[in-house]
């Protein structure tokens, strides 16, 4: 049985279908990249999986649970974690407190009014920060971190949920080329080590071909092509869509 099963989801804005019936599945432990030109519907698709947007039609199932239109927190609690295209972190808190809050939420201890949050799950938070390489910055306030470091913190926040599936929306957007490869290698390594499946969108084809087991190409809200990297790379229609940015395939 597949971990995630997406069947014909669609979403229209003002008569224009941003996503027009997309279906795919994701097996346990599989790394899948969702690619396509700008406006292809990648982020909309992602937000429907994460619960941020309710699909107009179609279904999404995760480990057999119907999560179509479910709230982000229910999806999160079932074991789906995500990162955002523009990083979302708790800017007024320190790096460690960020992770501690994610752990508190994961352990369902949000409605606890007297203990000090700063004393809860401290070792676990430190361990997670060590894994993403942020332990030395644990006391710094998130609001003043460099962008690349924020991406790492967000990864730690996602991992704090002990997810079965990790959704990463353009994890390397806005980073320098070398940084991108490092970050994605880190994320992929951590996911492999813990047997977490990975679905990510990405513009950087180096990153995509380095880590994806399988690639889904979206164009104008529909799946244009799907398959292993080599097959997709060879697909004529994909080449046409990417005409003008064919340089990506040179690698």
């Amino acid at each position: 049985m597949s971990l995630l099963a997406v069947d014909g989801i669609a979403k229209a804005y003002g008569g224009v279908e941003a996503v027009a019936g997309v279906s795919f599945a994701l097996a346990e432990g599989e790394f899948v990249a969702l690619i396509g030109p700008n406006g292809a519907g990648k982020t909309t698709c992602f937000n429907m999986l994460g619960g941020q947007i309710r699909p107009d039609r179609g279904t999404v199932r995760f480990e057999g649970h119907d999560i179509t239109g479910a709230s982000p927190r229910r999806i999160a609690r079932l074991g789906v974690a995500r990162t955002f295209q523009i990083t979302q972190s708790f800017a007024s808190m320190s790096v460690r407190e960020n992770v501690q809050l994610a752990l508190i939420a994961h352990h369902r201890r949000v409605f606890s009014f007297l203990p000090r949050a700063a004393a809860l799950y401290r070792p676990e938070a430190t361990a997670l920060l060590e894994r993403v390489g942020m332990a030395d910055q644990a006391e710094r306030q998130c609001g003043i971190l460099a962008y690349g470091d924020l991406k790492r913190v967000e990864l730690a926040l996602a991992l704090a949920q002990a997810p079965r599936l990790l959704l990463m929306d353009e994890p390397t957007a806005g980073m320098a080329a070398q940084e991108r490869l490092t970050l994605m290698a880190l994320a992929a390594g951590l996911a492999r080590a813990q047997d977490i499946s990975l679905l990510f969108t990405e513009h950087d084809m180096d990153v995509v071909f380095a880590h994806a087991d399988r690639i889904i190409v979206l164009d104008r809200g529909r799946i244009l092509a799907e398959g292993p990297p080599a097959a997709v790379r060879a697909d004529r229609r994909v080449r046409e869509v990417y005409l003008g940015s064919g340089a990506m395939f040179a690698a």
Binding site: G50, P72, R73, A76, F84, F90, S92, H106, V110, A160
Partner: peptide, 15 residues
Amino acid sequence: RGGRDAPRRAEASGI
């Protein structure tokens, strides 16, 4: 405070 700083993050963390 987390919900104030980053509502989408908080929801995605299961809050």
